[in-house]
Each structure stands twice: as C-alpha cells, then as structure tokens.
Design a protein around this nucleic acid. Structure first.
Lengths: 220, 220
DNA sequence: ATTTGAATTTAGCCTTGTCTAAATATTAAT
DNA sequence: ATTAATATTTAGACAAGGCTAAATTCAAAT
C-alpha cells in the first residue's frame, strides 16, 4: 500500500470527484480551478501521479483515474466523511462549517483510528451532506436520487444530498428550513420559471427557484 | 498570531519539552536526537526560529525558548493532550497507542475544533499519562508529585504520571496492573537494591525495581 | 485548409526542509 | 596551555511543490 503526500492525496481526491460518468477525462484546467492552483503546477503533478500509476495521463487529453487511484480516493473520502459525521454529531458543528476542518483531518494516517472512529459513530452510511461513506473496501451504498426540480407535482420523498455544498448554499438551506433527511412533497410547480413550492415535514411550505431545487437531491 | 509549519511546530514543541528548570539552554544535539534529524538540519532551523522570535539562539550555546515560543508550545501541547484524551476515552485506544496519532492530530489548525473537543470531553485537566492539559491561555494546573521510589515506607498516594512514556514502559505498567489514577501504598522498601513492593487499590501487590519506581510519579 | 485563441506543457526559478561533507568552535584531558 | 575529542555550524546538494513566462498543441472558426 503506497503512501502519498498531502498534496498528492488532495489531487487524487479532486480528480476522483471531478470524474464524470462520461469518459472525457478530467482536464488540467478543471483541476487547477478546483484546487486553486496554477495549471502549470497541475501539469507537473499529473505527470508524477501518472508515473505512480494512480492516473492514466495522456498529455493534452486530460486524465482518467485508475482502479488503484480510485481505491486511494475512496479511502480518503471515507476518512473525510467519517470526520464530518464526527464534527456534526459529536462536536455540534453545523454542516457548512465542517469542510475545512475535515479536509485537514482526512490526511491523518492511521487505519486503526478510522476503524475505531467508524465504530464509535455507529458505522454511519452517509455523511451530513447525504453523501455515502465508502466502507473499508471502498464499497459505497448508493441510493437512487433525482434533483428536486425533476420531482413531479405532488411527488414526495426525502432530501438526501446536495450538489452544491458551498457554505453559502448550505446556510441558505438551513435558514429556510430544508435539511438532509427532511420529508418533502412538491405542492406547486410554476411552469413559467420552473420555481416550485414544497411542503417540508408536513408542516412548513417553502418556495424556491429552479436553480436551488436543481441543487437538492431527493430519494423518492 | 503567527502561523507555523508542521516542521516548525514540531521543533517548538520539542524544544519546550526539552527545556529544563535549569537555565542551560537546549542543545542542538539533544534536539537532533529527540527528533531523529541530523544536527546540521537542526542548526539551520534554529537560526530560522530565532529570526521568528520563538527562541533565543546564540550560536554554539543552545537555545532558550521565548515567552512567545512558550505560548505556541503550550497551544500545541494542549491540542496533543486533548486528542490523547479523546483517543483513550472515546475510541478505546490504550495509552501506549496514542502518541503517534496524537502527534498528527495536534497539527490540525482550527481553534473552534479544539474548543469544541475540550467541551465534548468535559474540560479534562490531565491527559491519559497524567500530564496537565494547558487551558486556552496556556495556564496549566500543576500538582506536586514525587517519584514513587522517594515515597516513604507505608506512605500512600495516587499514580498521576510517568516520566518515561515509551510504549514499552507503558505496556509493562499495564501488564503488572499499574495505571494512572491507581491508589497505591508502599508496603516494603528493600534497602539493598532500592526495589519496593506496593499495594495497588488495596487489592494487589506489585514488586518493582528502583528504576521502574523512579519513573512513576505519585501525588501524595 | 489556415488561422487564431484557448488550453496545456515546458523551462527555469523559489522556498521549505532535509541530507552529507567539510570547516570551525567549544570542552575535556593531559 | 596545548591538544584531542566532541559539538556545532556552514556550504552545497536534492526533492517536493508551488510560481511566472514562454513555447507548444489542440480545437474552433473562418
């Protein structure tokens, strides 16, 4: 089991996250933007990661993550999400506060630590944003989900994740009373602009624009 | 509040820990041995830390930590010891397993994290080795303590710390049934070799050599 | 089929933190 | 008071990981 530096781990994680179902390969520019580094720095690192076998790197054509790379990415993501659960459930962080801290904690090297943490948290399957936590072997429990704006009128379900997990967006959701786990029902769809009205937990109604709804994922 | 790199934090912590009550200054060689780095590397870093004002550095005469350096050291030590409490009390680590992991966790930058962790742990004043945890302002609660071999015959007290916290020593203590917090009474002192016999928690007697006893600290 | 603009890579430089080998200062022993 | 041994520092090299500026390649539009 190879060891990677902080920087390398961050690249691996980012590449994995930017990998789309389509097989286009992740571009240097996208990585550069996501990590806030200059494209030149990214190019150089991609070459190195290519040599180490975690990605397939063809100059000028973006990168594809290898099976080995995927394994590493999932192990990092597992750590990140377990720490996020810890921060929210045990230390009472709000879900928009956790990212920075979890991004540091995820680099701590100790498999026993992660196993114990997992156990301590009761083997959670999803993090506070609703994203699945891979198990030790990198397997994730997927749940089928669709954007809220695609739920049909009078359709109902549960908020299980968000696409945009920026602090601003998360704070907005918190303010209007939407949260992971909330039961919702679509009670109005405005054809004109795509905005909708939903009923949350049979108690409260919320109006939201199509944009916002598109960033909320529902398990039906 | 200055920010320091991992490497710098490790130096600051080590220098603080090696600082003796006497005013000799900590030597390059001692630091080199403690951190397992070459003396040349240490020299170089001492110069830099001197320029940053956390230590007083006079070439060839060892270093003294400054007030500012001490503040930083205590904040690092606070983090380290709080994480050690977490690992032992919440994740069921044994006290000889915690050091490596805590040494990584102590570098995570987030004051809110540490404040919340402190609260979550119930504001502990001592870590699992019995060492005091500095508060946010760097104040430590000291407790007077003497080596077990200096406790008089029939004297009693409580094990509050160990001097040698090597994994081997800690495992040995665990095996014979001595632990932080144990109530002990000295029931025999052998003049010949300084070895002693103690009664632990009014239940069990343990023989130990002068060397071992000298590494166990008692609050009388 | 060229040209042009955007994306990407290369080349060269910088800082951090380590190392080895060589030089120098201090300390201990005669 | 010298000398020998030890401790420390300096000098120079190297790897990691970032940057800027310049060169190159790809792709889109004429």
């Amino acid at each position: 089991m190879n060891k990677f530096s902080f920087a390398e781990e961050n690249y691996i994680k980012t590449i994995y996250e930017l990998t789309d179902a389509g097989k286009k390969g992740v571009s240097t520019n996208d990585i550069s933007a996501a990590m806030k580094l200059k494209p030149a720095s990214v190019s150089d690192m991609l070459r190195k990661l290519g040599e180490k076998g975690v990605i397939d790197y063809r100059k000028y054509y973006g990168v594809h993550i290898t099976e080995e790379g995927k394994k590493h990415a999932l192990s990092i993501i597992r750590k990140q999400r377990l720490w996020e659960v810890f921060l929210v459930e045990k230390l009472r962080f709000t879900w928009d506060e956790v990212t920075d801290v979890a991004d540091e904690l995820e680099h701590v090297q100790s498999s026993i630590l992660i196993r114990r943490l997992d156990e301590y948290l009761g083997f959670p399957k999803f993090d506070p944003h609703g994203d699945p936590i891979p198990d030790e072997y990198g397997d994730v429990r997927v749940r089928p989900r669709i954007p809220l704006n695609e739920v049909e009128l009078n359709g109902s379900g549960q908020i299980v994740a968000v696409k945009d997990s920026s602090a601003a967006f998360l704070r907005y959701l918190d303010k209007v009373g939407a949260y992971i786990g909330a039961r919702i029902k679509v009670i109005e769809k405005v054809e004109f602009d795509g905005s909708i009205e939903i009923l949350v937990d049979n108690k409260k109604t919320i109006f939201m624009s199509k944009d916002v709804a598109g960033n909320i994922l529902i398990m039906v």
